[in-house]
Amino acid sequence: MRRWLLRRTAQAAVTLAIAITLLFVLMRAAPGDPLSRLQGDRLLSREEIASLRERYGLDQPLLTQFGAFVGGLARGDLGVSIEYGRPVTSLLAERLPATLQLGGAVILLNFTLGLWLGVRQAVRRGSREDRWLTVASLGGYATPSFWLGLVLAWLVGVKWGLLPPAGHSDPLLDSGAGFLERTVDLLRHLALPVLTLSAVTIATTMRHQRNAMLDVLRDPFMLTARAKGLSERAVTWRHAWRNALFPVVTLFGLWLPILVTGSVFVEAVFAWPGLGSLAAAAVGHRDYPLLMGAALLTAVLVVAASLLTDLVYALLDPRVRLS
């Protein structure tokens, strides 16, 4: 176990190093740089641009710039955002809570409602309920989230005025508001973006869980479980579901980074102050330091999610050994 963990950590470090290098090179290979926009609009003179370039180290050779970035990384310093003029770490830290709230709520909903619906479908395979849920999940799967987001924001948020159509909290909320009041306000703001992101993800979770369950329900040990005289509930949830969790764990491992770094579209539609919109803006601005910071965070999450997936596998399946 310890050796496994050490080896996986070493592997993760190598993966991260490759990812960072690739990102750094690719970003520089893209046309334009953080200052070309200012230059094109003739907002600044040639001399001013040159002095800015020097200030951000953009006049240095690529290798030197990379060295400076890696050096900063070793000290936990991701540099200063060119667009915002603030440290990248504090920008990321500022946006992280909102993203975790959104991603966490979506994952929670998938892990409860999505799995439960998938299991139900498999157990009642071929029933009217199964067919309707199949239609619904295919519908959810086929719906573009930015479109669904816009429709929900307009219909529920604006036309019916049931829920706030945008933002993270009510700006008019009294700063002295109690915990309960603030929580309710957050949940109301969360509802529409979570619903939008969940429509697609739950559809996928349901399909995976349904298929995994159908596979397990055909296994001979299900017959053993029934022949012992176990209740249908024990047969379904203890014997079948435990074995049908593996494909879903893999799915969640793949999703975790996406949900944590946020959905660009959904954050844009609902003006949700998360990492997704920050990263999207950074691409547009060629804000190298901020973009590298956001990309690094994503890479770390991808590696961590895959590590977590393996750990959960080992926890669930006695045949998997961490060695």
């Binding site: 040990f221 209740s231 006695p318």
Partner: peptide, 22 residues
């Protein structure tokens, strides 16, 4: 359910797949 296992016990053909692996 009360009859299954209690009045009749069953053994199946393939012990490799008839036990729950987890």
């Amino acid at each position: 359910r009360q009859i299954r296992g209690r009045r009749i016990g069953m053994i199946f053909q393939d012990p490799m797949t008839s036990l729950n692996p987890v």
